[in-house]
Design a binder for these strands. Structure first.
Lengths: 258, 258
DNA sequence: CCCGATATGATTGACATCGCTCATATAAAT
DNA sequence: ATTTATATGAGCGATGTCAATCATATCGGG
């Protein structure tokens, strides 16, 4: 009744693929397709869910689409309040009408969910390069959605590359909400060079740019600089003291603490 | 204990929005947010699921993202076998390498799932304008994914418009797999003018174009013509006799019956 | 070649969910 | 105003899901 390591690993990899391909898979279906008992299915599910990308639900498992389903993920983790509060703080900066850019990143996705809930009562045009954001915002009444084209980067579920930058050409944004991987005294940084280049291109076309960064990003610095603090705003759950300690000083009108 | 019609309708509309925004919602959560009993929550869920867009699961409900989760939806309906078989038939026409275009539509999504399962062992470049297809194919090893930009059309979860057509410019496809809404003796047709225009633009850039159309589309004709039968292939679960009866005659190498 | 480690599947009990019926209160119709 | 229709919540049994335990068979290492 025992099976080689590689066999287990291969089966779990396959399970991951199945869930990704189907979006949602009940336990019973998993048993049938992988020809294993419910007990093993659950164990595999737990293992696969443990290292991310898949979310466990009651009757089965859900593909994450990179955390598109944050309500599930957030409920499990502690980040819920932090991300949610940052998103709520940012949402107050979203005008009732105009052209908006929404970047990738889980916090920005949370903002998208807030906007989706807010729903009608507005005349927004939203442009995004994030697939999860598009999924959340697609079909919201009173909201026109445009998606930039590009190459798909799985790790962040984002479209990037020269096509994406070219697609920016015709747009000008009243406001943009972006994510990042690090912030310190020198500014905001990202780990992927082409993503950083893309974000810089967005900034050039934006009147009011806000970065949504929770406190875990504070003090970390990743290879590719996106912007210094001279012209961007910050929405964060960190404190003024800790920001100052990291060398970040921003005027009140460009800093939102939640 | 009774509540006005509009109240119920409004609450269900709100529920729809909540599920869309969160992706997945357990029954308990719905009770809390809408302040209703589990019984009413289930009833509302059933009502909302009945007219589509949302899929019921064991512990709650799932946003469809326009049938991205076909395994759930298909299991419920009868179309499963038909769509799945058409998709499997089309999959045999997919080369091991080269540049592919995948259109929107549930049958094409089924094809995408087949390709996702097939996984590695190939060197494919896939271009699509369908968000569900992108979701399914994103992150599949050995597969490079590009998404065309454009305006988001909720009803079909597709990106279209002049931006999408412009984004086609640089591409040439070895094969393309498209959906449609109707087929008769005159060819394939679609109900949305801009979608039809987009599909025609795809055809101009494609060596081998296949339309994936199940038998329910046979004989119906929608306002906007996409292509006649002179240069396109058809994958369908209809029979030769019924195709002939509808005035469709295709050489064997451009017709796949499943 | 032997022994410990571990993956598996069956079983069990606790719990949640589901679909149902039913009494009730209130909106809608006449 | 009376009657009908229907939305609601509670109670109920059936079913499904989950986590834990345990015997067993096989892999991995010595």
């Amino acid at each position: 009744m025992r099976v080689p390591f590689h066999e287990v690993a291969r089966r779990r990899e396959r399970l991951r693929g199945l869930i990704r391909a189907d979006g949602f898979l009940p336990v019973g279906e998993i048993c049938r397709r992988l020809d294993i008992s419910p007990a093993t299915a659950r164990r595999d599910l737990a293992a696969v869910a443990a290292d991310g990308r898949i979310t466990r639900t009651h009757g089965g498992a859900l593909a994450d689409y990179n955390a598109a389903f944050a309500s599930v993920g957030e409920r499990a983790g502690r980040a819920r309040t932090a991300k949610g509060r940052v998103a709520a703080g940012a949402a107050r900066q979203v005008p009732r009408q105009g052209v908006l850019f929404l970047d990738a990143g889980t916090t920005v996705q949370a903002l998208a969910r807030v906007l989706a809930r807010r729903g009608g009562a507005s005349r927004l045009v939203v442009v995004t390069n994030s697939l999860p954001v598009a999924n959340v915002l697609g079909g919201v009444p009173g909201l026109e959605l445009h998606v930039l084209g590009g190459t798909y980067l799985h790790r962040q579920a984002v479209l990037f590359g020269p096509e994406a930058i070219a697609a920016l050409g015709k747009w000008r944004f009243a406001a943009a909400f972006l994510g990042g991987e690090g912030m310190d005294g020198s500014g905001v940084s990202n780990s992927h060079p082409e993503i950083a280049a893309f974000q810089r291109a967005v900034l050039q076309r934006t009147r009011a740019a806000w970065f949504l960064l929770d406190h875990t990003k504070l003090g970390t610095r990743t290879p590719h600089a996106v912007a210094d603090w001279s012209r961007i705003g910050l929405v964060t759950d960190a404190t003024v003291a800790r920001l100052a300690a990291a060398g970040i000083h921003l005027p009140a009108q460009r800093l939102i603490l939640v």
